[in-house]
Amino acid sequence: MEWFGLYNYWIVVVLMMVGFYIVIAQGNLIKKIVGLNIFQTSVFIFFISLAKLEGGTAPIHVEGVSDYSNPLPHVLILTAIVVGVALTAVGLALVVRIHELYGTIEEDEIHAQDEA
């Protein structure tokens, strides 16, 4: 039961591995960025899910409520998401430049061109 109870962590691990695998195994530069995004997102989910308290509510002081979810991770992840977006933007910009310069976004073809 405990195993299933921590299902959010299982999702995180699976997503993380999926993302990581794409980053490593894919030769397409765009797909790599997608993989990186999934990888990062898994970490975001991890943070957010660990802040959730069962039965807890938003941290606004209301009569009769004693359990609150922790707001700090949400705030942190908001920042991290912004950072992630910026990263994706820079990454994609780089890919655009690479496409202009090499005419391809396949890693092996680029390496072949560089070596030639």
């Binding site: 990062q40 991770p73 780089l94």
Partner: peptide, 29 residues
């Protein structure tokens, strides 16, 4: 033009690195 590719590679490795750091920080938290 290799500079752009080098930058891209750095971005990949660097992001993985900082994300690992983030995971670690999450655990500590």
């Amino acid at each position: 033009r290799q500079a752009v590719m080098a930058s891209y590679q750095y971005l990949m490795m660097g992001t993985i690195g900082t994300t690992f750091l983030l995971i670690g920080i999450g655990f500590l938290y």
